[in-house]
């Protein structure tokens, strides 16, 4: 079951390596759609201690799609977790102030797949259908956030931005709706990250 996702992860890393070839070419505008235009590196957010991967922007950078491979080490979290996350985000506002650009409000959704036999995408045979209504291998999450960035010529970066994200995973949303006074702000956890535009 994990194999197609592994292939997906490999493809994602190939795309990442592919992008350096693109950065060197002068005719950037002519790059085909599948060549990523940015890359992201993220800390936390329920998809690993660190997650990284390529991203694609659409509609004048209002919409962004990212594919992140995440990892959390056993020494920190008791088991090695490897995840593959598809993240979609909408940045409706874009402000600039001097050399800085801000995207103060971001809303998005993510689906994160965790590799390994301990997690299921389809219920194992020992259960009747519908025994559990959620999938332990696939976590949906809602995202709220914002970002600020600028170009960093000294590092040769056209645009580097830092972002934060409030992440509400499925189990947090369900428990919040049922138990608002226990969960409170536990609806969200925080993720921090950086994006580099090519």
């Amino acid at each position: 079951m994990a194999r197609p996702w592994l292939v997906g992860g490999l493809l994602a890393s190939l795309l990442l390596t592919g992008r350096s070839a693109r950065a060197e070419s002068p005719e950037q505008a002519a790059a085909p759609w599948y060549v990523p235009d940015h890359a992201a590196l993220q800390f936390a957010g329920s998809i690993g201690m660190l997650a990284a991967g390529p991203g694609w922007a659409f509609l004048d950078e209002q919409l962004e799609l990212e594919v992140l491979v995440g990892w959390a080490p056993k020494a920190v979290v008791g088991a090695d977790f490897v995840t593959l996350t598809l993240k979609g985000q909408w940045h409706p506002f874009h402000l600039t102030h001097r050399e800085w650009s801000f995207r103060p409000f971001t809303v998005g959704a993510a689906f994160s797949y965790t590799f390994g036999d301990d997690y299921y995408l389809t219920l194992p045979d020992r259960y009747v259908s519908g025994y559990y209504w959620f999938k332990t291998a696939l976590r949906p999450a809602l995202l709220l956030g914002g970002s600020a960035g600028r170009s960093v010529p000294s590092l040769g970066l056209r645009h580097l931005e830092g972002y934060y994200e409030l992440v509400a995973t499925d189990y947090r949303i369900v428990q919040f709706l049922q138990n608002p006074s226990t969960v409170k702000t536990g609806l969200f956890t925080l993720a921090l990250g950086a994006r580099v535009r090519f």
Partner: peptide
């Protein structure tokens, strides 16, 4: 911060 839903 949450690093993974099943973090121990």
């Amino acid at each position: 911060f949450e690093l993974h839903p099943y973090e121990v």
